[in-house]
């Protein structure tokens, strides 16, 4: 295990798509075994940041360290090995609709780790139990589930291989407040049980307050503030204040076409 207190480090990461600058020298440290939540509005570069860490998008420049190793220098095998440390809950759940629910949860075990289907199914049903889903749900197809249940399945899939790092991409988007709180509780309990390092992105402040040890705010592709979850309400940063109180007036100007 690396002595670095940070599990993931992003240093001066730049990414642009055509003329649009998405990440503009982003620097961020995710402490080992802690939960960091990145807050920020839509289109500020949150999802691109996560995808850069996972290697789904290649940054134009900068450094991304995972356990002290520069992921931008990984070859295909090293990347595959590094990805085994990760679990991810996608914004839209991203469940495979051609597979049953239990096969979705067990997918990483069967395909990624060559585990026998019977053994993987037992683990999948156990993980589904941890997120409050009975074994009967395992035989259904994802399209037969409600949005909240799909999120639970996606959470079960993210934790099935007991990863060291879990990413949550807008885990409560599209859910009613009660179901959102249920998902937040499940995230908290599952992560505590695994002792995983987590990086979440959200614009749901109640979710951020519930699951975060640390909070960082991204704006125009840069981290403009970071601190502990307790400090977020007294950040002294006008951008953070405007965002967490959801005010239209403030330094963040939304790009809205006036009639």
């Amino acid at each position: 295990m690396s002595d670095d207190p940070n599990k993931i480090v992003l240093r001066d990461v730049h990414k642009r798509f055509g003329k649009k600058v998405v990440l503009d020298g982003l620097t961020l440290e995710v402490p080992r075994g802690k939960s960091l939540v990145v807050i920020g509005g839509s289109g500020t570069g949150k999802s691109v940041m996560l995808k850069c860490v996972l290697g789904l998008i290649r940054p134009d420049s900068g450094e991304i360290l995972i356990d002290g190793q520069d992921s931008m220098k990984f070859n295909a095998d090293q990347r595959e090995q590094a990805l085994r440390k990760f679990g991810m809950l996608f914004q839209g759940s991203a469940l495979f609709d051609s597979l049953k629910v239990w096969e979705n949860v067990a997918f990483g075990l069967i395909q990624g780790r060559n585990m026998p289907r019977k053994e993987a199914k037992d683990i999948a049903l156990d993980k589904m139990g941890q997120v409050g889903l009975g074994p009967e749900v395992g035989e259904l197809s994802p399209s037969e589930l409600s949005g909240g249940m799909q999120k639970r399945v996606a959470l079960a899939r993210a934790i099935a291989a007991e990863p060291e790092i879990i990413f949550f991409d807008e885990p409560t988007t599209g859910l009613d407040p009660i179901m959102a709180d249920v998902i937040n509780d499940l995230i908290k309990s599952c992560v505590q049980k695994l002792g995983a390092t987590t990086l979440s992105i959200t614009h749901d402040m109640s979710s951020a307050r519930k699951i975060a040890d640390y909070v960082a705010m991204i704006y125009k592709g840069k981290i403009i503030w970071h601190g502990t979850a307790a400090q977020v309400d007294n950040s002294g940063n006008a951008y953070v204040d405007q965002f967490i109180h959801g005010r239209a007036e403030g330094p963040i100007k939304m790009e809205v076409l006036k009639p």
């Binding site: 995808k51 996972l54 290697g55 789904l56 595959e80 990805l83 085994r84 990760f86 679990g87 991810m88 996608f90 914004q91 839209g92 991203a94 469940l95 495979f96 609709d97 051609s98 997918f107 990483g108 395909q111 990624g112 780790r113 899939r157 291989a161």
Partner: peptide, 25 residues
Amino acid sequence: AEIGTMRVTEQIDALTTLSTNPFKY
């Protein structure tokens, strides 16, 4: 249609995060 839907619903990204090469799969 199938692979395109998987692409726009991030299922192909999910394959990668589950240690499965989308090309191979």
